[in-house]
Computed example of a mutant assay.
Amino acid sequence: MQRLNEGGRQQAEAAVAEAVRRKLQAAVETEHTYRHILAFTAFMAAYLTALGLSDQDLPSVCLAGGATSARFGSSGEVLDYIEGRLVAPHWRDPVCGDGACEAPIEFAAFGRFGCKADCGVEPNTTRLLVKVRSNFGGHPLLAPRLLMAAARWNVCLMDAARRQRGDPDLCWFERDQVFTEAAATRLETMDVIDGSWYVAVQGDYAGRVQGAVYSMQDPDNPKQLTLQAGRCQP
């Protein structure tokens, strides 16, 4: 019984320690977020003030900080100062090639994506074969050329984290692919990372485009993958 009590006490202490760790982590993240909000608020206040002054005569504006001060002759110089001293140090975009892999904006390279110089090459990829078949002929009202001109397609990765940041999904082709023939089948191979890839078709109002995706891990025996709700599940 004593051993059981001792084990229960240790489990309780571990649970309490874990709860405290989570609260501390949440507090640190909250403080970090508040600091960014306060800095952004200060920037916006200064920015709007400068915009308000832009329609007035501005012979001299002085921004003092501690023992230093800066004097400006126009609102444009004020904005340049704010950008250099406040915006650039805190909202600097990652630069590929500076030696630091800054996730999540930078990541290991695959296809045309990622930063090879800072993050290296993604070792875990799957080769896919995408087959897009189209036949725009035979519509009772609309000409094939009209239907074909409206349709576009691409292969994209559904990424919840990117969408939360307001970034668009990664798509294999930089520009959506067009159709140049009324009836044709196009084959494309690509080495992609694991995830929910989907064939995005736009403008196919008559339902004249069909797609299929195959795994090429075994080139001699391609395996067709299931498409569900526009997603490709490897």
Results as ranks from 00 to 15, higher is better:
1 M>C: 11
3 R>K: 14
4 L>Q: 15
5 N>Q: 14
5 N>E: 13
6 E>I: 14
7 G>K: 14
8 G>W: 12
13 E>V: 12
13 E>F: 13
16 V>A: 14
19 A>E: 02
20 V>W: 00
20 V>Y: 00
25 Q>A: 03
28 V>I: 01
30 T>M: 01
35 R>G: 04
36 H>Y: 07
37 I>L: 12
39 A>I: 07
41 T>S: 11
44 M>S: 11
46 A>G: 13
54 S>P: 06
56 Q>G: 01
57 D>P: 04
59 P>I: 09
59 P>L: 08
60 S>C: 08
64 A>K: 13
66 G>A: 11
68 T>S: 14
71 R>E: 10
72 F>P: 09
72 F>A: 10
72 F>I: 09
73 G>S: 11
73 G>M: 06
77 E>R: 09
81 Y>S: 07
83 E>M: 07
84 G>L: 08
85 R>I: 05
91 W>S: 07
94 P>C: 04
95 V>F: 02
95 V>K: 08
98 D>K: 07
99 G>C: 05
99 G>H: 07
100 A>T: 02
102 E>S: 05
103 A>F: 09
103 A>K: 13
105 I>Q: 07
108 A>P: 06
109 A>Y: 09
109 A>S: 13
110 F>K: 04
112 R>E: 06
113 F>V: 03
114 G>V: 10
114 G>T: 07
115 C>E: 00
117 A>C: 02
123 P>G: 10
125 T>A: 00
126 T>R: 14
128 L>V: 00
128 L>M: 02
131 K>Y: 01
131 K>F: 00
133 R>E: 00
133 R>I: 02
134 S>R: 04
134 S>N: 08
137 G>N: 11
137 G>L: 08
140 P>I: 07
142 L>C: 06
147 L>E: 07
148 M>R: 15
149 A>D: 13
152 R>A: 10
153 W>C: 12
154 N>L: 15
154 N>T: 15
156 C>R: 11
160 A>C: 09
167 D>S: 09
170 L>N: 00
178 V>M: 03
179 F>H: 05
179 F>G: 01
180 T>C: 02
182 A>D: 13
183 A>R: 11
183 A>M: 08
183 A>G: 02
185 T>S: 05
185 T>P: 00
188 E>P: 05
192 V>Q: 08
192 V>L: 15
195 G>H: 08
197 W>G: 05
197 W>C: 07
198 Y>C: 13
200 A>H: 15
203 G>P: 01
203 G>E: 00
208 R>T: 01
209 V>W: 02
209 V>M: 05
210 Q>A: 14
219 P>R: 13
222 P>F: 06
223 K>M: 11
229 A>G: 15
232 C>R: 12
233 Q>V: 15
